[in-house]
Write a protein that binds this DNA or RNA. Structure first.
Length: 511
RNA sequence: GCGCCCAUGGCUCAACUGGUAGAGCAGCUGACUCUUAAUCAGCGGGUUGUAGGUUCGAGUCCUACUGGGCGCACCA
């Protein structure tokens, strides 16, 4: 039955689910076919973009012929002449069609709707009311739309301010049907274009320094490089379970062992955890590893890179995020974790015992959960009392060793590792350390993690024997970095939900 | 996972303490060959997320479910 003529499908299925608006459009589709107009032709030679036409128009110049293609976003019919706005990938332009000019096809235009995609050929002119428009000589239907689009109207007032009326605001519809959101909501595209620009700028920044972009496995026989519960899948032919990566860290460092000086990857990572404004089950992490460098060097690099990206994307080192203005101009403040805690709690916890910290936790009214180590309590105090206060980009350095099984012991501070995070707008933006390359210490740290795992910590890391084998061959001193691309995009585009920087955020099934 | 809030025509929203659903835009018919949130005249469109319950009567109250939002937890 696969040879059925598509013609026979047109009004067949799902008629009962259709409302009158959709039925009406199918009737128009039939009418177009009856008139021998192909509602879905194969190509159109589009030579101009709406925005270029508008920005390049000069009243004195001779008539310019143009050809644009896009979606009809509004129609104003006045008997034998009509105006409509056509939206292409760059913007919108008004089109003027009159019967004297386009003849019989004016009747075809009567069968068109908001949402239909057309191609228009004509010349550019300015209307009496002052809007640069296209006087159509000819138009062609390029795709008939069968569903009514949400109608968003806008008005530009005398001061040139745009007023949007009834924007499509239903978040569920916007996320589930992002295509509709992109069509009708101005500005949504901009966020995603910026997202790509951010990644391109980072790529350029690294490439000019000779760092190699690489790809490593997403399906891993063993997961590692972060604290998180993984997604599990199954390979039928091998009959083994595989994990979707939670990080690519251990693979990139294997490549450093293999002799690359610097490798990076934009890594789609997957973590089987709760979802909220800053967490999507799949997200994008940039990881970079550079041989013969340490975390101090990495701080300078991060400062340069992020400020370059901010400037490239927004044309300024400063950007508005919520109610704050964030200034990415280097140098950023650098403060150790313990100095930061002292600054915001008045407590010096650097040379304390586990018992001392417990007393301080109580004084600060924080709950002590069973099995909390010295390091995890310090971390808790930090996230409660320090992090919320850090708005401008700030390097927090030198973390407790328990929280960082892949980071190198601090060269001079007992119980700490050489690690930093950058906090911006009260959230972690990146995480970096001098990488642990002592294979014996790494084995010891993995074993500590395994003990936690045995105690029921589902997020403790697992011992990776092959990774240890790689380290045993010798890894040079290395600096490593991870940056959440989604969160960086949120910052630079002033979006407060990760769903607004992902085209298709994870949603529960519709029905 | 827990708590709070939300769900009404294609879209944006209304409907006082429960009285049997209304507007704007979009759509349709007609008028209009420089309009622009076009205008003018007329018309149609809803088993109010789903399933139960209370009531003479439920969009409105109750219960469960589904989906969404926010917060908390989890989140290295």
């Amino acid at each position: 039955m696969s040879e059925q003529n598509p013609e026979q499908h047109t009004i067949s299925t799902h008629v009962e689910e259709m409302n009158e608006l959709m039925k009406r459009r199918r009737e128009e589709l039939e009418e177009l076919k009856r008139q021998n107009i192909n509602p879905y032709p194969y190509e159109f030679s589009q030579t101009n973009f709406s925005q270029d036409i508008i920005s390049q128009y000069k009243d004195e110049s001779p008539q310019q012929s143009v050809s644009v293609a896009g979606r009809i976003m509004s129609i104003r019919r006045m008997g034998k002449a009509s105006f409509c706005h056509v939206q292409d990938s760059h913007g919108k332009i008004q089109v003027y069609l009159k019967k004297d000019e386009i003849g019989d096809s004016y009747e075809t235009f009567r069968l068109l709707d908001i949402g239909d995609i057309i191609g228009v050929e004509g010349y550019v002119f300015r209307t009496k009311m002052g809007e640069i428009s296209i006087h159509a000589k000819r138009f062609e239907l390029l795709s008939k739309s069968l569903r009514p689009l949400p109608i968003v109207k806008e008005k530009v007032d005398e001061q040139g301010n745009k007023h949007i009326f009834d924007p499509l605001s239903d978040k569920e519809l916007r996320y589930r049907q992002r295509y509709v959101d992109l069509i009708v909501n101005q500005g949504v595209k901009e966020v995603f274009i910026k997202r790509t620009k951010i990644m391109n700028t980072i790529r350029k920044f690294f490439d000019t320094r000779g760092y190699l972009e690489v790809e490593t496995p997403i399906l891993q026989p063993m997961y590692g490089g972060a604290f998180a519960r993984p997604f599990i899948t199954h390979h039928n032919a091998l009959d083994i379970d595989l994990y979707l990566r939670i990080a690519d860290e251990l693979y990139l460092k294997r490549l450093i062992v293999g002799g690359f000086d610097a490798v990076y990857e934009f890594s789609k990572d997957f973590r089987n955890e709760g979802m909220d404004r800053s967490h999507n089950p799949e997200f994008t992490m940039l990881e970079l590893y550079v041989a013969f460098k340490d975390y101090r060097w990495m701080m300078d690099l991060v400062e340069q890179m992020v400020s370059a990206v901010a400037h490239d994307v927004n044309g300024s080192m400063k950007c508005k995020v919520g109610g704050n203005e964030i200034d990415f101009t280097p140098p950023w403040k650098r403060v150790t974790m313990f100095d930061a805690i002292k600054e915001f709690t008045g407590k010096n916890l650097r040379s304390t015992t586990e018992e001392d910290v417990k007393i301080n936790m109580k004084e600060l009214h924080l709950e002590i959960e069973p099995g909390m180590s010295w390091g995890s309590m310090i971390d808790e105090i930090f996230s409660e009392f320090v992090e919320p206060n850090l708005i401008q980009p700030t390097f927090i350095t030198d973390y407790p060793i328990e929280m960082s099984p892949l980071a190198k012991r601090h060269r001079s501070e007992q119980g700490l590792v050489e690690r930093f995070e950058v906090i911006v707008n009260a959230h972690e933006l990146c995480n970096a350390f001098s990488e642990l390359n002592d294979p014996l210490d790494q084995r010891f740290r993995f074993e500590e993690q395994m003990k936690l795992k045995d105690k029921g910590d589902e997020e403790a890391q697992v011992l990776d024997e092959d990774y240890l084998r790689a380290l045993e061959y010798g890894m040079p001193p290395t600096a490593g970095l991870g940056i959440g691309i989604d969160r960086l995009t949120m910052l630079l585009t002033n979006q407060d939900s990760i769903r607004d920087v992902l085209f298709f955020p994870q949603m529960k099934p519709e029905h």
